[in-house]
Every structure is written in structure tokens, then in C-alpha cells.
């Protein structure tokens, strides 16, 4: 597939284009947070309990006089970084296990799939909470916890792809022409299984961001990093007096997650054009 075909497929989905623009905006916000809102977002910037559009706080201030808008800008970093890194780790675990299971088949496949099933049965958010609580919250433990609970779907997907490609005739032809297993995995199978994996990975970034925000909401975020979930959680009990303190960070999460989901669908349409067309 050429680049042009890809972009044409992607742009046919209007939602995906909107999502991409949104995502770029969030990324810009994260990148320029220090310029837009210099200084520490944890510091008091104005009087406490300022409603939106009052004085120098565009989106209001919280109970300690911290600027909500500054918190959102700095929180964008944490969300995106954790979303991306934990997805990368989950990809590494999931695709490796799935590839081994799907390629090798037999008892290896069985064993890996039982293991995956086990992790899928465990209520993943509870496990993430337990892991982060026990190993004390920090960026590292949060990333690891999210990755540990998120890899099973990727493993299943990679396995299904490998399993079906493994029995395809072009792979068997590679076997009969004497290519090594590693060559077959890397050159014949992997490139053909990438599209669905890329699509799921993009959707998984969104899920990871939701997970991170949920952990922070419960007070299990990195205590040194301002994050959206923490802002909503801290303002939870003030909702009657100051709705804006939890409203705006929540909107930030919704928009970011929405943009990633839209981009993921666009990728799906662009990478699997036949499917997209048949879905009308």
C-alpha cells in the first residue's frame, strides 16, 4: 500500500481527521505547557475557589488557589507519556507472547493461552490498584501496572494473526524453500500482521490514559506529577461548591481519549480498506 492510499483511506473518515486534529492540539498543549503556564502547577497562583473566567484563572482555581488550566496543560504530559510508554511495554509483552504461541502452536500455544486467559480473568483494574498500592505509586510502577493488565488482548490478537498466517501458503512456501524460522517470523509473518496490531495499539493508548486517570483519581498517581485524574479526585468532595474543579479536567480526559479512539478507527479504515468499505 502506498502512502497516498493510506492518507486517502484515513481522510475518508471525517471523524478520524477531527480526532487527529484534536490529538495534535493535546500534544501541542503538552509540549508547550511550560511556555503557556510557566512555573509549578502545584503552586498557588491565585485566590482559592475562583470560578472560571474570573481574574487571571481562565478555568478557575481549586481549593488551594492552583490554576486549573495550568494543571490541565501539565497533566497532558503525564497522560500522554504514560499512555504511550505503557502501550509500548504492553505491545512488547503481548506481541512476543502471541507470536510465540501462534507460530509454535501445540503445547506452547496452549500454555501461553492459558496464561493469557488467567490475566484476562483477573479484574484488571483491581490488579493495577493492588500493584501500584503495594509497590508505591510512581511513574514507573504505574506504567508497569498498566502494561501488566493491558497486554492480554494484544497477545490474543497477535496469536490469532500468527496462527492464521502460519498456515497460509506463502509462509509454507518459505518453509519449503529453506528459510529460517526467524526470517519467516520477521519477514513473512510480522509485516502482514502489523495492521490490526497498530490499530489495537492506538486504541490501547486511549485505554491506558483512562486507566492512569482512574488510578490517580483514587490517589494512586505519581505524587510529583500533576495529572487529570488526580485533579478530578481531589475536587470530588467539592462538587457542590465548585463544579469547575472536576469538570474541566474531566473534559480534557474525554477529548484526549476520544481523539485517540477516532484516530484508531481512521487507522483501521486506512489499513483495512476492504473492511471499511463493506461496513458502508
Amino acid at each position: 500500500m502506498t502512502n497516498r492510499d493510506f492518507w486517502r483511506g484515513f481522510a475518508r473518515n471525517k471523524g478520524a481527521v477531527l480526532g487527529l486534529l484534536l490529538l495534535l492540539a493535546v500534544m501541542a498543549l503538552a509540549a508547550f505547557a511550560d511556555i503557556l503556564f510557566p512555573g509549578d502547577p502545584w503552586e498557588m497562583a491565585t485566590a482559592p475557589f475562583q470560578p472560571p473566567l474570573s481574574g487571571d484563572a481562565l478555568l478557575g482555581s481549586d481549593m488551594l488557589g492552583r490554576d486549573i488550566a495550568a494543571g490541565i496543560a501539565h497533566g497532558a504530559r503525564v497522560s500522554l507519556v504514560i499512555g504511550l510508554i505503557s502501550t509500548a511495554v504492553a505491545l512488547l509483552i503481548g506481541v512476543t507472547l502471541g507470536a510465540v504461541a501462534g507460530f509454535h502452536g501445540g503445547w506452547v500455544d496452549d500454555a501461553v493461552m492459558r496464561f493469557t486467559e488467567l490475566f484476562q480473568t483477573i479484574p484488571n483494574f483491581v490488579l493495577a490498584v493492588v500493584l501500584v498500592a503495594i509497590f508505591t505509586p510512581s511513574l514507573t510502577t504505574i506504567v508497569i501496572a498498566i502494561a501488566v493488565v493491558s497486554w492480554p488482548p494484544l497477545a490474543r490478537l497477535a496469536r490469532a494473526e500468527f496462527l492464521s498466517l502460519r498456515s497460509r501458503e506463502f509462509v509454507q512456501a518459505a518453509v519449503t524453500t529453506g528459510q529460517s524460522n526467524l526470517t519467516i517470523i520477521l519477514r513473512q509473518i510480522l509485516p502482514n500482521s502489523l495492521s490490526p496490531i497498530i490499530v489495537s495499539a492506538s486504541l490501547m493508548v486511549a485505554t491506558a490514559i483512562l486507566l492512569e486517570s482512574s488510578l490517580s483519581f483514587l490517589g494512586l498517581g505519581d505524587p510529583n506529577a500533576m495529572s487529570w485524574g488526580y485533579m478530578v479526585g481531589a475536587a470530588r468532595t467539592m462538587i457542590r461548591q465548585a463544579w469547575w474543579m472536576s469538570f474541566f479536567p474531566g473534559i480534557a480526559i474525554v477529548l484526549t481519549v476520544l481523539s485517540l479512539n477516532l484516530v484508531g478507527e481512521g487507522l483501521n479504515d486506512a489499513l483495512n480498506p476492504k473492511l471499511a468499505r463493506s461496513r458502508g
Partner: peptide, 26 residues
């Protein structure tokens, strides 16, 4: 071996030249 399905027996991501040359190179 020559396979049954001409649509499944060639890797869609490789050029025809590569497909033929891969065996001898291996």
C-alpha cells in the same frame, strides 16, 4: 512445492523478484 491458491501463496508485501530469490539466498 507448487501450492493451490495463487492468491495466498505469494507474500503480498514482497516483490516478485524477492519472492523467487529468497529460497536460493537462504
Amino acid at each position: 512445492m507448487v501450492f493451490q491458491d495463487p492468491y495466498a501463496s505469494l507474500n503480498p508485501r514482497h516483490t516478485v523478484g524477492d519472492i523467487i530469490a529468497q529460497g536460493p539466498v537462504a
